[in-house]
């Protein structure tokens, strides 16, 4: 562990000040499941960890059937799958929350932390993208909101400026005709970084796709919103052919690298497979079918 201090602000204003003062060496500490590992490995200069979990807004869950859901950026995954409103209205959030790490990791890891870590393979980000999530950011120059699909700018990089941090993430209210699903592929059944992941959300008018979003991860420098996949579906009936066209669009959009976790060929192929599977299951959820997440959730 590199030499550092932990500070524990209790207000957003205090946190902004501490982050701003700390400059590049200051990092917010939410669940710590990435940033503590990074600090321990001494791969980046971190000299202040700003523990944001004492700030009430950072761990709040607010649900309103009209305006939707806002989750504090540092809300741990277990709070999400322990929350009946989230479970009932946003099953794709539960998909992501139950797939991240082991149970012990889920006791700490958060959607905000996962987003700000900005890994191409972050297992909550495609879900946040297809659910039209918006990151609510606070900083020295005031507040701003950024759609999640525009948040990450490269591996480990994002739009946050000095002194800025994500306070919460908001999602619009779900549509009665809608459904969403997140899946990832890993070599084991738990605990790995995604070789490829994907989320799909659809809104249906009978058999016709009224609206769709598809996002794939671990196949580009940032998680991608695949416009071509949505284009292949919207206004058309949901058939094997249209789903296959969307899957092909994901495969075309994927520009993966070869690394120890997966090959280019494997990742491009999986982006199509997971797009197809998430679309099929999102549609079944849209039609009211109960498709469980993992682990009995």
């Amino acid at each position: 562990m590199q030499a550092l201090k932990v500070v524990r602000p209790t207000t957003i204003a205090e946190a902004i000040e501490q982050l701003n003062e700390g400059g590049d060496g200051a990092r917010p500490l939410a669940g710590g499941t990435d940033v503590i590992v990074i600090a321990r490995a001494r791969v980046r200069d971190i000299d202040v960890l700003v523990d944001v979990k004492q700030i009430p807004e950072l761990t709040a869950i607010e649900w309103d059937p009209d305006s939707g859901l806002t989750i504090g950026a540092a809300t741990p995954c277990y709070e999400l799958y322990g929350n009946a409103d989230v479970v009932q209205n946003y099953p794709a959030i539960i998909d992501s929350a139950t797939l991240i790490g082991g149970t012990g990791i889920q006791g700490r890891a958060s959607f905000g932390g996962n987003l700000c870590n900005s890994s191409p393979s972050g297992d909550t980000i495609p879900t946040q993208i297809v659910l039209e999530g918006v990151a609510n950011i606070a900083g020295p120059n005031g507040e701003r909101s950024v759609p999640v699909e525009d948040f990450c700018t490269g591996p480990g990089r994002n739009v946050l400026g000095q002194g800025e941090f994500v306070v919460s993430i908001s999602f619009p209210a779900p549509d009665a005709s809608g459904g969403a699903r997140f899946l990832r592929f890993i070599p084991r059944n738990e605990m790995d970084i995604a070789v490829c992941n994907a989320a799909s959300a659809v809104k249906l008018d009978g058999d016709t796709v009224r609206w769709a979003r598809v996002s794939i991860g671990a196949v580009a420098p940032t998680p991608l919103l695949v416009q071509g996949a949505a284009d292949a579906l919207v206004g058309k009936p949901l058939t094997d052919e249209t789903i296959e066209a969307a899957a092909e669009a994901s495969k075309d959009a994927a520009t993966p690298i070869d690394d120890m976790r997966g090959s280019i060929k494997q990742r491009k192929h999986l982006s199509a497979v997971l797009t197809r599977r998430t679309l099929q299951q999102a549609a079944r959820r849209a039609r009211g079918e109960d498709i469980p997440s993992v682990g009995g959730h």
Partner: peptide, 28 residues
Amino acid sequence: LTEEYFYAPDGRLLNSSLLDYRMPTALD
């Protein structure tokens, strides 16, 4: 099925953690 050593061409071990050296979990 899952355990292997990934070496870079220059000889660095790329998966020197239990995240990427994948031993079976209870779910496997």
